[in-house]
Nucleic acid binder design. Structure first.
Length: 422
RNA sequence: CGGGAAGUAGCGCAGUUGGCUAGCGUGCAACGUUCGGGACGUUGAGGUCGCGGGUUCAAAUCCCGCCUUCCCGACCA
């Protein structure tokens, strides 16, 4: 991809009215743009990262036996009356009437919709267990949107719903999801803490929250000064207390961002909506449900919040919008045909090897290209400039290390594939 | 919804004891010179000073009302 054909509106200065690092960097690197409070556009670079995050999530969900579908966000309020959540979620629902004067809402979540769907087609224990998921936009009329896309009114969520014939089945489905979540966050390079929590408006019994410690956040977790222990803040686990794990260190509190939440709903929704099936003995029973959410767009913010330095974002390789950025440093095309040819050749070769490559082909000064490259944080940078090319060399530099290395121009490709294994 | 801060060119800001044609930086356009860490010169385009009302000979500036954004809290997944 050529920079001049793409759309990367970077900002030199910190936008007014922003405090969270991720909020600033997401805006400055041209990943997102605010339309109004809590409502954001995802620009091409940001969308690429979102797609990569989704790819990791889909991979693990599919592996765990979940099946993807896509539910409507336009929903009739009547459906919500079946569970009484038209009242419970009244404050967060974005409601309006359609052209036929029917009360509607933009879905803040999808338990009612999925339960309504499943009850139409599942009548027998033979059709269970079932796990359905989607990656979809959710709408919540937040009283106070915060930290850019960390808490937004319109955001992307992966939500999965499991359907089992009994509690033992739910335990198995729940455990599969819990393990899948741990795997997902590991792949996303996020050091999450899974803690059991209240299930709040979702209902049901057991739930786990997946939190990542960060410099901003709306939750608090505790960490041990000596060992690896981390946990949720409770009456018995708070600042200054001796670590229950190693009995050596003391606990300190830190804020954290909630990235995922899984719930054992049991029969709350199937009872209310009459989602019933016949068991082996011909007895009618409510389907036992669980639900499993990950804030996909919030994950994007969390990654930026954690992986950055004073110059910009440092993408983990798996989610980076591109693998490699090529920086031809040049002026007039006639004088620097070698630089341009070499850049083009590298681009073709690396692309054919399966890498996603961005060339900064703008006619800009070296300083500006370097600074933008640091800001958008592509993992590997290849700099092709007259200075080093005179010696037959090009520079290869990882974003996360301070210094680059000089390699012979003929060896660059093999060196790169050594560093970035595909 | 309670408390605090802010709104002047695309972006970042100055100007606010009322007073000249509203300024600076950056970005943008054109030309020339540059070309390894946000280059330089010349010229130029770009503004309902958040919105509405009031006071005044005169309002970005003073008064009243409202809107928007951010931060803390409450609330929530």
């Amino acid at each position: 991809m050529k920079w001049t054909q793409f759309f990367i509106p970077t900002l030199k200065e910190v936008p007014q009215g922003t405090e969270a690092i991720s909020h600033q960097l997401l805006l400055r690197s041209g990943l997102v743009h605010m339309l109004t409070s809590g409502v954001y556009s995802y620009l091409p670079l940001g969308l690429r990262v979102l797609r990569n995050i989704e790819k990791i999530i889909r991979g693990e969900m599919n592996k765990a036996g979940a099946v993807e579908l896509f539910l409507p966000c336009l929903q009739p309020i009547d459906l919500w009356k079946q569970t009484g959540r038209d009242q419970v979620l009244d404050d967060v629902m974005i409601k309006f009437k359609d052209g036929k004067n029917r009360p509607m809402c933009l879905g803040p979540t999808h338990e009612e919709v999925i339960t309504d769907l499943v009850k139409n087609f599942v009548q027998s224990y033979k059709q269970l267990p079932l796990n359905l998921y989607q990656i979809q936009t959710k709408f919540r009329d937040e009283l106070r949107p915060r930290f850019g896309i960390v808490r937004a009114c319109e955001f992307i969520m992966k939500d999965a719903y499991s359907f089992d014939k009994d509690m033992a089945g739910l335990q198995r489905s729940y455990e599969l999801m819990r393990k899948a979540y741990i795997q997902i966050f590991e792949e996303l390079d996020l050091d999450v803490i899974a803690i059991s929590a209240d299930s709040g408006a979702m209902g049901g019994k057991l739930s786990h929250e997946f939190m990542v410690p960060a410099s901003i956040g709306e939750d608090t977790v505790v960490m041990c000064s000596d060992c690896n222990f981390k946990g949720g803040k409770k009456e018995s686990l708070c600042q200054g207390v001796i670590c229950p794990e190693c009995q050596q260190g003391t606990l300190s509190e830190t804020v954290a961002i909630e990235l995922g939440h899984i719930f054992q709903l049991q029969t709350k929704y199937s009872d209310a909506q009459q989602a019933l099936f016949l068991d082996e003995t011909g007895k009618q029973k409510p389907i036992v449900m669980g639900c499993y959410g990950i804030g996909v767009s919030r994950v994007l913010a969390a990654i930026v919040e954690i992986h950055n330095d004073e110059k910009g974002i440092i993408w983990p390789e798996k989610v980076a919008p591109f693998d490699i950025e090529i920086l031809p440093l040049s002026g007039k095309k006639e004088e620097d045909s070698e630089i341009h040819e070499l850049s083009e050749n590298y681009y073709k070769e690396l692309t054919s090897l399966g890498y996603e490559v961005l060339i900064d082909d703008r006619n800009e000064s070296a300083g500006r290209k370097f600074n933008d490259a640091d800001l958008i944080g592509i993992p590997l940078r290849v700099t092709i400039g007259r200075r080093n090319l005179k010696e037959g060399k090009v520079e290869i530099k990882r974003r996360r290390t301070p210094d680059g290395i000089l390699v012979d121009k003929e060896e660059a490709i093999s060196k790169i594939s050594q560093i970035l294994k595909k």
